[in-house]
Design a protein around this nucleic acid. Structure first.
Length: 391
DNA sequence: AAACAGTCCAACCGCCTCACA
DNA sequence: GTGTGAGGCGGTTGGACTGTT
C-alpha cells in the first residue's frame, strides 16, 4: 500500500511515544498533548491523561488502518485502546473520515466539482456535509477548506457576497430586480425542499440500516436478495419519510408550500417511481459489484457505509435534479475561468469591481448569465416537470 | 539570503443531535 | 420524560509551505 503523508515531521516509533510523557512529546515537536484538567464545565472527549494530539505519524496511520480493515471501527471511543493508539476516538474518526478512508478522492477539484460546490452552496449554505453527499469521494472538510480558500475569495473578488450569493452592492433595478427576487424566492423554496429531502434521506437511511441489521446482520453485502421487493420497501419507506417531512414542513411555522392538485406533487412522483428507476438500479448494482470486488478488503459495515448506502438507495450520489451542473455553466464559467471573468457590473448593474481590468463588453444575454438567472433557469425549466429524484 | 506576508489544509474545539437506558 | 454518551457537524486554529520584497 502506497501511503503519502503531508507532514515532514520525523516519525518516532509509536512505542517510544507511549513511553514519553506529554511534556516530552510537546518539546520534541510531536504536536499538542491533551491533558485531563477540567475542574468544571464540559469534560473533553479525550478523558485520559497523555493522549497525543497534532499531526498523525505514519505508524499511527498504519495502526488505525490495520485495525479498521480487520475489525471495522466499531465504537470510536473504544478504538484507540484496541488499536494501540494514544489518541482519542474523535481524533481517530476524523483521521479516518478525512484522510485514511480508501474511497477519498484527493487532489485538485475539477471544473464540474467547483460548479457543483458553488451551486450547492447557493442552495444549502455552509452545510458542508450535505454538499459533500453530492460530491462523491470528497470530504466535507476538504470542500469546506476549498470553499474558504478558493471559491469564497473568487466570489468576493467578483463583487458577489459569498454568503448570500448576491452582488455586494445590492443594486438591482428594473426587470433584473424582479427576476432576482423571483429567483431568490424560488431558491428559498428549493433550499427548503432540499432540507426536507435531506431529512427524508436520513430517515430512510436509518430505516434501511435497521432492515439491514435485521435481515443480514453479519455481511457487508446488504443488498437485497430480492431487489424488487426491497426496492418497493425502500420506496415505501421513502414515501413515508417524505410524508413525515411534508407534514412537518406544512406546520404553521413552515413557509414551504406544496402546490399541485393532488395535495402535493411528491406523492405523485413517488407513485410513478415505484417501479424503481433504471438509474437507481444501475447505481445499486454498480456499487454492490464494487463491494463484491472488495470483499477481502472490507469485511465490515461501518455506520458511514450504512448511511451512504441509504443515500445511494435513493439515488442522490449525483446532483439531485438534471441540469444542475450544466445549466448554469455560463455564470460559473465567470468564476472558474480567470481569463473570462467578466465585469460583474454588466450583469449586476453597478459593481465597480474589476471595471478597470475587465472593460471588454459582453454581448448577448447568454453570456450575461448571472447567479440568479442561471439558477432561475434551472428552477423554471426543471422543477415543474422534474422534481428532485427522491427515489 | 533573510524577513515578512499570504496561502493552504490537517486537525482540533465546542456544540448539536440522536439513540438508548 | 429525562439523563447520558457517542457520533457528527461547522467554525476555527496552528504550522508548514510558498511567494514577494
Amino acid at each position: 500500500m502506497l501511503m503519502i503523508y503531508s507532514s515532514n515531521l520525523p516519525s518516532p516509533p509509536a512505542l517510544f511515544i507511549s513511553q514519553l510523557d506529554c511534556t516530552q512529546l510537546s518539546v520534541l515537536g510531536f504536536g499538542k498533548v491533551a491533558y485531563y484538567s477540567t475542574p468544571m464545565g464540559r469534560s473533553p472527549c479525550c478523558d485520559k491523561i497523555g493522549l497525543k494530539k497534532g499531526p498523525w505519524t505514519p505508524e499511527e496511520d498504519e495502526k488505525l488502518l490495520a485495525h479498521i480493515e480487520e475489525h471495522g471501527h466499531g465504537s470510536w471511543r473504544a478504538l484507540p485502546s484496541k488499536a494501540g493508539l494514544q489518541r482519542c476516538g474523535k481524533s481517530c474518526r476524523l483521521r479516518w473520515t478525512n484522510y485514511l478512508r480508501p474511497d477519498i478522492k484527493r487532489g485538485k477539484f475539477s471544473l464540474q466539482e467547483e460548479q457543483t460546490i458553488i451551486q450547492l452552496h447557493a442552495l444549502l449554505g455552509n452545510r458542508w456535509s450535505a454538499i459533500a453527499t453530492h460530491l462523491s469521494r470528497r470530504t466535507d472538510n476538504e470542500i469546506k477548506n476549498y470553499w474558504n480558500t478558493h471559491l469564497k475569495k473568487r466570489l468576493a473578488k467578483m463583487g458577489i457576497d459569498p454568503v448570500t450569493h448576491k452582488p455586494t452592492n445590492g443594486a438591482l433595478i428594473g426587470t433584473e430586480d424582479i427576476k432576482s427576487a423571483k429567483a431568490a424566492a424560488s431558491l428559498s423554496h428549493m433550499a427548503q425542499w432540499e432540507s426536507a429531502r435531506l431529512e427524508a434521506e436520513g430517515r430512510l437511511a436509518r430505516e434501511s440500516k435497521m432492515r439491514t441489521a435485521v435481515s443480514i446482520p453479519t455481511s457487508i453485502h446488504a443488498q437485497p436478495t430480492n431487489p424488487a421487493d426491497s426496492t418497493a420497501s425502500q420506496c415505501l419507506g421513502m414515501l413515508h419519510a417524505w410524508q413525515d417531512a411534508k407534514r412537518d414542513l406544512e406546520s404553521p411555522t413552515s413557509t414551504l408550500t406544496f402546490i399541485g392538485s393532488n395535495n402535493g406533487m411528491l406523492p405523485t412522483q413517488v407513485t410513478t417511481s415505484l417501479g424503481m428507476p433504471e438509474s437507481n438500479s444501475a447505481v445499486w448494482k454498480q456499487r454492490s459489484d464494487e463491494l463484491e470486488g472488495n470483499e477481502n478488503e472490507w469485511k465490515f459495515i461501518s455506520k458511514q457505509q450504512s448511511k451512504e448506502r441509504g443515500r445511494e438507495i435513493i439515488g442522490c450520489e449525483e446532483p439531485w435534479f438534471p441540469g444542475m451542473i450544466s445549466v448554469a455553466a455560463g455564470f460559473t464559467d465567470m468564476l472558474l475561468d480567470g481569463s473570462s471573468v467578466h465585469d460583474t457590473s454588466e450583469c449586476w448593474g453597478e459593481s465597480s469591481i474589476g471595471q478597470a481590468e475587465h472593460s471588454s463588453q459582453v454581448s448577448g444575454d447568454g453570456e450575461c448569465n448571472n447567479y440568479w438567472s442561471g439558477i432561475l433557469g434551472m428552477v423554471n425549466s426543471e422543477l415543474p416537470s422534474h422534481p428532485p429524484p427522491l427515489l
